[in-house]
Design a protein around this nucleic acid. Structure first.
Lengths: 226, 226
DNA sequence: CTGGATCCCTCACGATACTG
DNA sequence: CAGTATCGTGAGGGATCCAG
């Protein structure tokens, strides 16, 4: 834990969560408490010793607590402290900022349930909901998450609920759609998205549902370099 | 520039600005464009090769642009792109978060004009101003900055303006005062702060001015570990 | 003087294997 | 499941040197 030698809040923050992998661990823990192995599964490229080291450092910084679950579970979970929870806004803002440069799905890159959940949370625009309710199921390869919108609030969950109004299966990048660069019809025509619904609604209705989705979870297009 | 292998905005963001020193460079550039040597002075502990590497990486990521000033200056400055400017909220939030753990001025630690300016900007609470106007001068060792508050807006500047309503010279940590843990009178009594004013206002008025200052630039006390 | 490039050394990170 | 142990590599730290 090397100091930056500056008496400065930003420097202190970076000493606590600025090291490699640290904020990605926080990102996953923002979704909920996790066991060591769950963290490792959600962050496949992290070396196990680095994960162990980061968890100790985050614990020492008061960001994370290691807790042994009461009987009969008896397992170990890591969860954010209240102090650690305060990072949520920062992580969401970083996610929004970085999403502008997401580009295409790189080779060897993966999407995890937690990263998708945080992506939805970070781009969620309550103003775009306008009192509607909706339940979406999002499929990215074998990762499936659900998003439920009610009373202008977003609830996310890993896995399928089995009763989404609209199931959005993505085969390619959704970012052009979310950035408003192309329409729902276009992204479907490109074969990057396939829609299905529990009820047998028409294709036009499903497209409209996808347009709604894009409006609720918008990302900003990249500004021109200044 | 190693990838985290995740198709995720947070991961992308960390690939761009997550490496050591990167966000501190951004912090200084948020104050204004800077020359290589200015950056090096503001970040005394950064190795010169790391600064050069980071600047190239940030430029490649579109966060920073290297610009040669027009004649007759002809010097090189680095400045944030529009995209880089968008990090302001994140850096300020990180500063607020980290300020809770600032503690005492560590040995070997320094405060720079830029870090103080960003600290003021990050803790500035427009609601606490309530229409007042004020000009402060802050002295931390040999670092001097000025803050001018007008129309609910904050303007900061390195160096002295020479006509501050209140000059606050700090010899010890101000954080307990800003966190509301002690009063202005107490921090002055402890010898951690010395006040002076252009006009010869009374000690009580100066103390009241310091209380105002603490209300305008509040930091939150540390929450108990959950 | 500014704006770096170069060298060397160390330690953190990454990959893999292994254990209570 | 929840880590520790080991080891190679490359990035960071620190000093020095160089061109404009």
């Amino acid at each position: 834990m090397k100091s930056y030698g500056q008496f400065c809040g930003v420097a202190r923050a970076l000493e606590m969560v600025g090291e490699r992998w640290a904020l990605l661990i926080v990102r996953d823990l923002l979704v909920g408490p996790k066991r060591y192995t769950d963290l490792k599964t959600g962050l496949p490229r992290i070396p196990t010793n680095v994960l162990a080291t980061r968890l100790k450092e985050l614990e020492a910084a008061g960001v994370v607590v290691r807790r042994v679950l009461p009987r009969p579970a008896g397992s170990v979970v890591y969860e954010l402290t209240e102090f650690g929870q305060e990072l949520e806004g920062i992580v969401l803002a970083l996610g929004r900022w970085g999403a502008q440069r997401l580009g295409a799905f790189g080779e060897g890159e993966i999407a995890t349930a937690d990263s998708l959940i945080m992506a939805l949370r970070s781009t969620f625009d309550p103003d775009a909901v306008a009192g509607r309710s909706a339940t979406y199921e999002l499929r990215f390869g074998d990762v499936v998450i659900s998003a439920q919108i009610e009373n202008g609030e977003l609830a996310t969950d890993a896995g399928s609920t089995g009763k989404a109004d609209l199931v959005i299966e993505a085969f390619g990048p959704l970012t052009p759609l979310l950035a408003g660069e192309i329409t729902a019809a276009e992204v479907v025509a490109q074969g990057n998205v396939q829609l299905s619904a529990m009820d047998d609604r028409s294709a036009a209705k499903k497209l409209a549902g996808l347009e709604d989705f894009a409006a609720i979870f918008p990302i900003r297009p990249l500004p021109a370099a200044s």
